[in-house]
């Protein structure tokens, strides 16, 4: 075996420019002794090092990151109410906000003139949920895509766009108000109720679990007074309310990380699934689907849910990111 090796050959080898036979020669040489391997490593280091700068310029980190980022399996928006470490004090003596869950919390405080006010805005994005304990001790759960605003100095005056469940601390002398975007108001003293008022929905739905609530229309006139187990559907356009008896716990299930439907049509199901999973569903409505569904969703993925539904109902679906297409 040769003791030394031609460095031109090594260089060509590292350039991958050698023949199989030449490689055999090198293979024999490196197999021969540790000295030879050390020699090879030294030469290889010099070779590699001198090339690094150029090969580095060939690599596009941004592009590589984009590529990888697209491949990462991302968790679907979660529905758990997890306590966040966001604890913020605004006007400490007045208010302590505990923002829970995965919801994002925006707070914009401002103070104007003599009349001090600090408007606090809590907002959840698609697929997020959150909860807050107001300074008066009332507990509010926010469903996804919901905005709750209140004055930190008077937390019993709130406005809501979206869906929230209120557990209002009893205080007969200070009524608790929720004003919806439509102008409809819910006035309570100490109750548990679910309020659903998404911009674009024709109805505002108030479901009472405990206590009493008053529904006021845009003209501050009382439209209805609910008893536990009753649900008021406020028709925004007509400024009137119809009341029916329901199982109230079904309407606030979202806050318990569980979504339950009892004998519900496909059309009624769609907006709930959309909000639960943070997706947009479009239905190709060539034919009508009259199937009714009863089910409970916990941690199932959207795909699992749809597959489950396909067992009893005939439809096809296609999920593309946040867009879901369904045709019957």
């Amino acid at each position: 075996m040769e003791e030394t090796i031609n460095e031109t050959l090594l260089n060509r080898f590292l350039d991958k420019d050698t023949s199989k036979e030449e490689n055999e020669v090198i293979l024999r040489w490196v197999s021969d002794s540790e000295e030879n391997r050390i020699e090879f490593r030294k030469f290889h280091r010099a070779y590699h090092m001198s090339k690094l700068r150029f090969s580095k310029s060939q690599i596009d980190v941004d592009e590589a990151w984009d590529k990888l980022n697209h491949l990462l399996p991302k968790a679907k928006p979660q529905h758990k109410l997890i306590d966040l470490d966001i604890l913020r004090k605004v006007a400490a003596s007045v208010l302590l906000v505990v923002a829970g869950g995965l919801g994002s919390l925006w707070m914009s405080g401002y103070f104007s003139g003599q009349q001090q006010s600090a408007i606090v805005e809590l907002k959840t994005l698609k697929g997020e949920k959150s909860q807050v304990i107001l300074a008066d001790g009332s507990h509010v759960w926010l469903n996804s895509q919901t905005v709750l605003k209140y004055d930190a100095l008077d937390p019993r005056k709130t406005t809501l766009d979206g869906e929230a469940f209120f557990e209002v601390k009893k205080d007969k002398t200070h009524p608790f108000e929720v004003i919806t975007a439509s102008g409809m108001k819910v006035i309570v003293t100490g109750t548990k109720f679910n309020l659903r008022s998404f911009a674009g929905d024709p109805f505002v739905e108030t479901t009472l679990e405990e206590g009493t609530v008053e529904i006021e229309g845009t003209d501050n006139k009382q439209l209805a007074q609910l008893e536990p187990g009753q649900q008021a559907q406020y028709n925004i356009e007509e400024n009137n309310t119809s009341v029916k008896n329901v199982s109230p716990e079904l309407y606030s299930l979202w806050k318990n990380n569980e979504l339950r439907f009892t004998d519900i049509s496909f059309t009624e199901l769609v907006p709930r699934i959309e909000r639960w999973y943070g997706v947009t569903i479009s239905i190709d409505n060539n034919r009508k689907n009259n199937d009714r569904f009863t089910m409970t969703i916990k941690t199932e993925s959207l795909r699992e849910l749809l597959n489950m539904m396909q067992l009893t109902s005939k439809f096809n679906y296609e999920i593309k990111g946040e867009q879901v297409k369904i045709n019957f």
């Binding site: 980022n69 990462l72 968790a75 928006p77 995965l102 698609k126």
Partner: peptide, 13 residues
């Protein structure tokens, strides 16, 4: 799918 919770955002970052 959009990443929309804080914990995951931090993880991705």
């Amino acid at each position: 799918m959009k990443i929309s919770n804080k914990q995951q955002l931090d993880e991705v970052q």
